[in-house]
């Protein structure tokens, strides 16, 4: 019994590390930038498909595959930003500027569908193999196992979290990002090119998504077009558990979600696993709604 609990916890860490990395990207977009970009997960899937398609047609190594995934996701992210979000900074003086965020959200959903269709057109089979990140044995601690991929994912999540914090609070670009989020008009008056700041931060968020997509595909060793939907649901759940707007919270939220899933799968079976995760989010939103605005209503990120 205790042995099962320990092994479940180690399995949960593996899943949770992936969610944590996804949640950091989602937190940057939703919590820090406050942009409801529904196609973020789909852009990750697009990056993974871009790399998979290239590897089926050309000989590429693992590092090149990672670079291709990130490049594909950045391209997709910049495309989403230009098409869905950029028109609303250019419409200066428009009295309908406030309806812009709704329009952007709906448009980003349309692009999600576009990315999925593009992926299915390029690679029509339901499932494609993706090269493994780590071909050898898992780590052994006595009778327990831990997948090596979990360590890579966790390390990446913590490193990205620290890197983002440094960028946001220690660089000139980070100052511009926070100014634009805080009071957009004042940022413009200070001489900050708001449109250019947004392209760059979307590209950065997409690069993080691409890295997450590569590590996840390489530890699942397969890709399907449903990766976009999966990343969106898991990333958003973990982001919400972490309090929507806190980067370390996103990492913690991802790990909690992973552990919760692993244990509930063991005790209640795979059908109940997702149900329990959704129930927890429902309970959190119903009983502690302030949890969600804890960060966004005070500081933009910390």
């Amino acid at each position: 019994m205790l042995a099962d609990l320990i092994q479940n916890t180690l399995d949960g860490l593996t899943g949770g590390a992936a969610y944590a990395l996804l949640a950091v990207g989602f937190t940057l977009i939703f919590g820090v930038l406050r942009r409801v970009n529904l196609s973020y997960g789909a852009a990750i899937m697009f990056g993974v498909y871009f790399a998979t398609w290239t590897s089926l047609n050309f000989q590429v190594g693992l590092a090149a595959l990672a670079a291709l995934t990130i490049a594909g996701a950045v391209l997709a992210g910049a495309y989403v930003e230009r098409l869905c979000f950029a028109p609303h900074y250019r419409s200066r003086g428009s009295p309908r500027a406030s309806s812009g965020s709704i329009a952007a959200m709906v448009a980003s959903f349309a692009l999600w569908m576009q990315f999925e269709e593009a992926a299915i057109l390029a690679l029509p089979k339901h499932l494609y193999a993706f090269p493994p990140l780590h071909a050898g044995e898992p780590l052994r601690f006595g009778q327990f196992f831990l997948r090596v991929e979990a360590l890579y994912l966790l390390l990446a999540a913590v490193a990205v979290c620290a890197l983002l914090h440094t960028i946001l609070y220690r660089t000139r670009f980070g100052l511009a990002v926070r100014a634009v989020i805080d009071v957009p008009v004042a940022a413009q008056l200070a001489g900050i090119n708001v449109s250019w700041v947004f392209v760059r931060i979307f590209a950065l968020a997409s690069a993080i998504g691409g890295l997450a997509g590569f590590l996840i595909a390489a530890s699942h060793e397969q890709v399907t077009p449903m990766l976009g939907m999966w990343a969106t649901i898991k990333g958003m759940l973990a982001m919400m558990l972490g309090g929507l707007g806190s980067l370390p919270g996103a990492v913690a939220g991802g790990l909690v979600l992973g552990l919760l899933e692993a244990h509930s799968q063991w005790f209640f079976g795979p059908q109940m696993r997702d149900l329990i995760a959704y129930l927890l989010i429902f309970a959190l939103l119903a009983l502690r709604p302030a949890w969600m605005t804890r960060w966004t209503s005070t500081r933009s990120a910390s």
Binding site: L175, R178, A179, V185, S300
Partner: peptide, 12 residues
Amino acid sequence: LVPENRLVFPHM
């Protein structure tokens, strides 16, 4: 421009 209502960055 020093804008109407000052518009300082409240969270910076």
